[in-house]
Structure formats: C-alpha cells, structure tokens
Nucleic acid binder design. Structure first.
Lengths: 231, 231
DNA sequence: TAAAAAATATGAGATATATCATAACATATT
DNA sequence: AATATGTTATGATATATCTCATATTTTTTA
C-alpha cells in the first residue's frame, strides 16, 4: 500500500541525518522528491528474487526477512532486517536484479527512492559515496561474519545465537514474541524444522528459556550466551 | 620482500585501466607514489588477523587464501584470491583492523598502496568511489552467494564445487596442481580433512577425477558439474 | 464458525559426518 | 642422509542431524 509522502514529515525524519547527513538541501530534496513510502502487512512480499532493481530501499518501521528459494522450493534466509537497515544495499551496486526476496515479518514501513536519482546523487557527491561505501562494507562484513560464525556451530549454538539476536538486537528484552516460525529459524541457520523445535524443547527442559506459543522468555541468559560461544 | 617500484613499469601495468581507469594522471601518480610492491613465498603470511589496516592491497601475481583462526586454533578459509583481486577490500571500509589473515599459497606479488592516500583519492573522485562501490559490492555478493550455495550442499557437492573452482576459475585447465592441502579444502567448506580425502578417493574410484599427489585431472566434467549442482 | 492448512511437538530409525586410530608416503629440517 | 613433521589414505566406531511418521495445537481460509 502506497502512502502519499505529504503525510510524512520527511524533513525531520530521524533518517535525514542518519542516512543523508552528507547531502545538501538540494540533493536531499531530489531524493525526497523521488521517494514513495509503502506499508506492508505481515507476510507480504516486498521484492521478489529476480525482480528488476529500480529503487533504493530503507526501512522505517517493522521487520523483514531477506531470503532465497532454491529449485526444490526450499527457502534459505539470508538475514533479518530492522528499522534503519538498507534492505537492498547488498545488491544495488552489484546486480540489476534481486538475488533474494524480501518479505515483511510484521507491519513494515519502507521508503522507496528511485534508483537513478539515488545513484545520480552518489555519483556527484563523493562524501555521500564514501558514506555509502562504509555502510555497504559494514553490511557485507556483518553478513559474512554471521555466516562464518554459524558454520562453526552445531545446532544448539546456532539456536542460541538466533535467540540472542532477537532478545538483544531486535527487541532488547528477555521476553519477546518470536516473529518467525521454527521452520524459518531452520532456514536461517540451515537446520531442519524438527531439530529446531527439539532444541527449543531442550532449552525449555533445561530451564534456559520459557515457551508460551510464540512468546519466548530467556530465563538463563548467561547459559544461553555460553552455548552461543562454545557450541 | 620489498621491491623497488622503479623495477616495475606501473604506467603500462595492466591494472592501470582495470583498477584505476577513473583516475586522471595526477591522481594516478599520487597512488603510484604511495605504492610499494612485495613478493611473498608460498606459506608466508601477508597480513595477520587483528593487524592494523594501513594499506589498500591488490594482487598482481600468485594465489592467496583469506582465513580466520578460532579460539581452539582451527582455521576457516573465507576465500581464495587470484591476480586482479583486491584482497582486503572487504575490510578496508568497515574495519580498522583485519578480521581475517592473508597468506600466500604460491609465490605472490602484492601491490600495497598507503591507505590514507587511497582514501583521499576515493573521497575526491566520486567516479572512482562509484567504481570502488561496484567492486566491493561484487566481492561481497560473490562471497555471500558462495557461502550460501555451500550451506545447501553435502560434502560431495562441496568438494565438486571446489574442484570446479580451481579447474575453471583459477587454472582454466582440467589438469592442475592443487595449491591447497586436503585439510585446507576442509577449512574452505567446513568439513573434516578425513572426509575430504575420502570424497577425493570416491571421485577417483568413480572415474570422475584422476589423482597423482597434488596433480588432479578432471576426467568427467559433466558428472562433476552435476554433483556440484545437485548435491 | 467450521473446515482446512500450517505450526508445534515428539519418537524411531536412517544417514551423513566426525572422531579416533593406524600406516604409508612426502616434505621440510638438522 | 637421517629425522621429524605434515599429508594422504583408510577403517571402525561414535555422534549429530535428517527423514518419516503421527498427534496436537494454532492459525488461516472459506
């Protein structure tokens, strides 16, 4: 669903300085003019793998997953993105078409800036280009580090890692509503649904977490962190 | 070992246009002036994890591995780099210290450009910044794609993938000298040495490859490609 | 609101991979 | 040249994870 930009007060948007701090008013205005905001409901696909990339996207609210679907229809989740993230920056300069799909995990607000306008500004403002360079570098670095860390872990370590990710990075609370299914946790860490569920149950039996449907409470953070580190 | 840059004819270096096509003569001269060339023998560490990043590096000749060492001393290989690759571009804009080590797998020639000079040029030439942006994006995209593809495969598929990488991307020959040990293949695909060796033996028994110490000949490319795809 | 579909839960058995052991061979070191 | 160290090789066994099956609960759809 499209929102008129008049509704939004972009001039004082928190992302004005966070993302576009290097731009002068004229440049910012051209970005702003090429922008549309969209709201997506839980489950909606924002961009599908293979689709042409014609905008620069960033999140203002919500939660999304970046994922790939293989030939036999199985998904692999690349990452979970939160407000402030540039959800297509990983592909924007290396591909003309999306190499992954993007779907909303909860109600999500996305800013969509026409790609040619965005690139025009990048090409004419080297400070901004440098800032984009730093960001893209950080994103890829984090993605690669995360994948590498996961590859070393066995299932318990991987599940602990994901629980900590939601508790510490997404919700900043030891009690939270898990926004993805057990199957999706499996798609995120390359394990089967059954084994994710079994591991959750095991953590529950061991008093590390409490489970109430989608609501998860971390009871023993120390132990969970230790499992994340060692296994 | 350091080489005087006078020995090298940088002005007509093939990388002049490949890497620095967007620079004018003055900019290129400042890069050139801040550059030193080094030769590393097989096995030598070029940069160690944790070391301060104070140069932009690219390879002119040879083969290197990028790798991380975990607490218990086990290595994980991030990627194998060849001539033309920017071996530290993944970290240069996101970290002040190396997050991986770089070691030579064969005699390797590395150009080392002082980082502050390189960044100065990036910041003042947005065309060049844009070109660096494209490159860094491609590198991270390839690294992430490769990791993701591997995560889906079982050991046979992973080994097939690595054999094809050396045959098609590195040596462009069905017969080549494997530049890494079986242990290193394992570090590259997150499998144990024994299972890599067993898989090589199995491929040999199945008539897919011929083994003569480090020399590997791919006998049945079609089947190997199929294993890479499906398994 | 009922019916269908998806998600959670758990067990048993199958399979892939790791671990440990041992040996032959190759490479590096003294 | 002799010795030590690392690499390749293979077998036996242990372990982790997957697959298939079935039941219950929750969510979605009609």
């Amino acid at each position: 669903m499209k929102i008129s930009k008049d509704i939004l007060n972009c001039k004082h948007c928190v992302y004005r300085s966070l993302l576009f701090g290097q731009l002068d008013d004229k440049e910012y205005e051209s970005i702003n003019h090429a922008r549309t905001e969209y709201v997506f409901k839980r489950g909606e696909v924002i961009k599908a793998e293979g689709e042409n990339i014609n905008s620069f996207l960033y999140m203002r609210k919500g939660l999304v997953k970046l994922y790939k679907t293989n030939k036999i229809g199985k998904d692999q989740i690349l990452s979970i993105n939160k407000p402030g993230d540039f959800i297509n920056l990983l592909n924007i300069f290396s591909n003309s078409n999306y190499k992954y799909s993007i779907a909303a995990l909860e109600e999500t607000l996305v800013c969509d800036v026409k790609l040619n306008v965005f690139i025009e500004v990048v090409r004419n403002n080297s400070d901004f280009a440098f800032s984009v360079l730093n960001r893209i570098s950080k994103i890829s670095d984090e993605t690669i580090e995360r994948r590498f860390a996961l590859a070393q872990k066995q299932i318990k370590g991987r599940v602990a890692n994901i629980l900590l990710f939601f508790a510490e990075e997404v919700y900043r609370d030891n009690k939270f509503r898990m926004p993805i299914t057990r199957r999706e946790v499996g798609e995120l860490v390359s394990m089967t649904t059954e084994n994710i569920i079994r591991t959750f149950s095991e953590f529950r039996k061991d008093g590390i977490i409490a489970l109430d449907g989608k609501i998860i409470t971390i009871l023993d953070l120390k132990r969970l962190k230790n499992i994340n580190k060692t296994g």
